Computed example of a mutant assay.
Amino acid sequence: MTYLRQEAELPPVLSNLDPIPEDRGIAGAEVALTDTKTTGSFMGHDYSLAFVSVEPGGDFLDAARKALAASRIVFVDGSPEEILAIADLPEARDALLFNVASGARRLRDADCRANVLHTMAEDAMRTDALMQMLKARRWTRTVLVVGPKPEDQAFAETLRASAQKFGVEVLASKNWTFDTDLRRAAGQEIPLFTQDFPDHDVLLIADEADDFARYMQDNTWLPRPVAGSDGLQGEGWAPVLEQWAAVQLQNRFEKAVGREMSSRDYAAWTALRTIGEAVTRTNSADPAVLRDFILSDKFALDGFKGRSLTYRGWNGQLRQPMAVVNARALVELAPLEGYLHQTNEMDTLGLDRPESTCTAFGG
C-alpha cells in the first residue's frame, strides 16, 4: 500500500494556537498498519506501507504514476481535483484508491469514480449531524457568518442545505470581511458585527480555513452558542470520544504519535483497516476482489463508534456515525433516535441514494 500526499502551502490565519501537524493523516495510517500487522501475523499475511509526500508545486501526477507502479492500493491525501486526476490515470484503472482528505460532495456525486472509495466523511454528513442535534434541541432559528475563502463558501452552502433538510431556519447571513487582528480587537469588533442579526438560537459559522471562528464565541452581541466550524461541530472523529472502546484507540494513537487523533487521521486509519479486514476475509490482495467485498453486505468494520461501519454501494462513501462535539465533550452521536431510514439509519447523514447522481458504481 502507498500513502500519497500533496503538501499544500497553508495561508496565514489570525491565530497560531493550533498548528496543523505535519504527520496529519499519515499518523493514522501508521497506527492502523501496526494494528493490521498484528492480525495479519496470525493469518500468514504481511502488510507494508510506503509514504510519498509531494512538496508544493511538485508533480503530483508523476508521483502517483510511480506509486501505482509499485502498489495497487493507494490512500490519496489531496484536493478533489487531484484525487480525480489520479483516479483517471490509465495506471489507476485497476487500482483501488481511498480518499482520506476531501469531504467535497462532487466526489460522491456527479464526479464519482468507481475506483475511489471515501473514508473521509462527506461535508454534508458533518452538517446533517449538526442539524439533527439542533432540531432535537429545538434550536431551529439560526444566523450564519461566512468566511471569504472558497472552502468557506462551499461549507456555507452545505450548512444551508442541511438546515433546509432538517427544518432549521437560517434567518440571515453575513460575509466576514475583516482583516483585523482579532487577538486584540475581538471584544470590540465582533459585537458590532453581530449586532444587527435578528434574534436567533444559534450562530452558525462557515470558516473551514480556521481563521476567525475561534474568536466568535463569547464575543457576540447576543449570548448565543456558536456552531459549524467552531463551537458545536459535526466530526468524523474527535479527541473527546471515549465510549465504545474509542478511548483505547485514542490511547494507542497518542502513545504512538504524541498528540490527539484528528478526523484526517481517522480517515486514514479506517482506510487501511478496511484493507486489513477485506484481506483477512477474502484471503486475497487483488484490488478487484477487495473492492467487491468491501462494497458487499458481508463487509463490516469496527470503527469504535458503537456501530459497524460499511460502505455505500452507490458512491463508495464509508457509512459512519458522526459525533457532534464541543471542545470538551461529546454532545450527541448522530444519527439521533427518531431519524429513520428504509435501509440504514446512517444514510440519513450525507448524500442518500436518491439524491446522488453517481452512476460509476452501477445500479
Rank of each mutant, 00 (worst) to 15 (best):
R65F: 01
E9N: 12
R105P: 00
Q6C: 09
E151S: 12
A67F: 07
M346S: 04
C112H: 09
I73Q: 09
R291S: 02
L159C: 07
W139R: 14
E235M: 12
Y339R: 07
N99S: 10
A323G: 03
V145M: 10
V31N: 07
T119L: 04
L134S: 01
R141P: 05
A360V: 15
R138H: 13
D23G: 05
A268L: 08
A268H: 07
A121F: 08
D210S: 10
E169C: 01
G228K: 07
V54I: 13
G228E: 04
M120C: 00
L84N: 08
M1E: 06
G78C: 02
A278K: 02
W176Q: 10
D347N: 08
M1D: 05
S173N: 07
W244N: 15
A156P: 09
L89W: 08
F166S: 05
M346Q: 14
L318N: 06
P191D: 12
R353I: 11
R5L: 13
V13W: 00
L14N: 07
F193D: 04
N16Y: 12
R113A: 14
P56T: 08
L349Q: 10
V289N: 04
A64D: 05
L97I: 03
N315C: 11
E81H: 11
E122S: 13
D111H: 14
K66F: 00
D292H: 09
R24T: 04
E91I: 01
M125Q: 15
I20H: 07
D211R: 00
A154F: 04
L336T: 05
R353M: 12
G57R: 10
M120Y: 13
A206V: 02
A213Q: 04
L318T: 09
T357R: 15
Q188V: 11
R224H: 03
D211W: 09
A129D: 08
V116Y: 01
A114F: 11
V116F: 01
S102D: 03
F98R: 12
G234I: 01
E337L: 11
D59H: 02
